[in-house]
């Protein structure tokens, strides 16, 4: 008798991912699907896919999905949530989408304490267009548009979205996680679950930032990428809870 030890989460569609080998989008998609299964909310969930490498996210989940214009996912999510407050709405966004072109939408969704959940993938680079500087690219990081490294006097500093959003009265649960190790992957799953629970309990805006890798545009093997994430990203983007007011009444 065979024992099933590995199963596709039910909320995850049975289609192959298009991501590059070693890309962490696949892991995070899976974690979201597992959480949707655990909470039993697939039939009520509506996801919002971004522009960026995760542009096809609408193909990977079995729940209803809407594709959004670049950066506008929090506004689209707001529209869906206001139309039907009983649905569970999540957006899946990269760093360009959430922290550059869509900063206004992100900040204002948080400040309205819009009862939605944002999953924010931060890999410090623009993957879709082939490796240009992201708002979260590190100082000194070489990208296609910072061929001599990101310089503070030219491109300013990388933006820390979790810290920034945590200062807003409207945000309820903000946490930065990583998927560089089994331990951290488990922690990311638990954090995504907590963020969805925050929404189910009608406690307002929740966001989980996930530090991620981009082997193709970093020019590193998947294993080297994980090292680069730990050595370079983690010191600037410390993991941890930045805001949690889900315990009491708001």
């Amino acid at each position: 008798m065979m024992e099933t030890i590995f199963e596709r989460p039910k909320a995850l569609a049975d289609v192959p991912f298009h991501y590059c080998p070693g890309c962490t989008h696949g892991i995070v998609h899976r974690l979201i699907a597992e959480v949707i299964d655990e909470l039993g909310i697939e039939g009520d969930t509506i996801g919002v896919a971004p522009v960026g490498c995760a542009v096809f996210a609408y193909n990977y989940f079995n729940c209803d999905m809407q594709e959004a214009a670049h950066g506008r996912a929090p506004a689209v999510a707001t529209g869906i949530k206001r139309a039907n407050p009983e649905n569970i709405i999540f957006t899946y966004q990269g760093d360009g989408d959430l922290a550059a072109i869509g900063t206004a939408e992100t900040v204002h969704a948080a400040t309205r304490s819009e009862n939605i959940t944002i999953i924010f993938l931060n890999n410090a680079i623009y993957g879709m267009t082939g490796g240009q500087m992201a708002p979260t690219s590190l100082v000194g990081q070489v990208t296609q548009t910072t061929p001599y490294g990101r310089k503070v006097e030219m491109q300013g500093y990388p933006i820390r979205m979790s810290e920034m959003l945590a200062t807003l009265e409207g945000s309820s649960f903000i946490k930065r996680c990583s998927v560089d190790s089994i331990k951290n992957i488990n922690d990311t799953r638990a954090s995504i679950k907590k963020a969805f629970q925050c929404q189910i309990d009608k406690k307002g805006f929740s966001m989980v930032e996930v530090l991620s890798t981009c082997p193709t545009n970093w020019g590193l093997s998947p294993a080297e990428s994980m090292d680069w994430l730990r050595d370079n990203m983690m010191p600037y983007y410390p993991l941890g809870v930045y805001k949690d007011v889900t315990g009491g009444d708001r």
């Binding site: 959004a68 689209v76 529209g79 139309a83 039907n84």
Partner: peptide, 10 residues
């Protein structure tokens, strides 16, 4: 874009 979301929600 809020209009887009709400219209999509029917």
């Amino acid at each position: 874009n809020m209009v887009y979301g709400a219209a999509g929600a029917g």
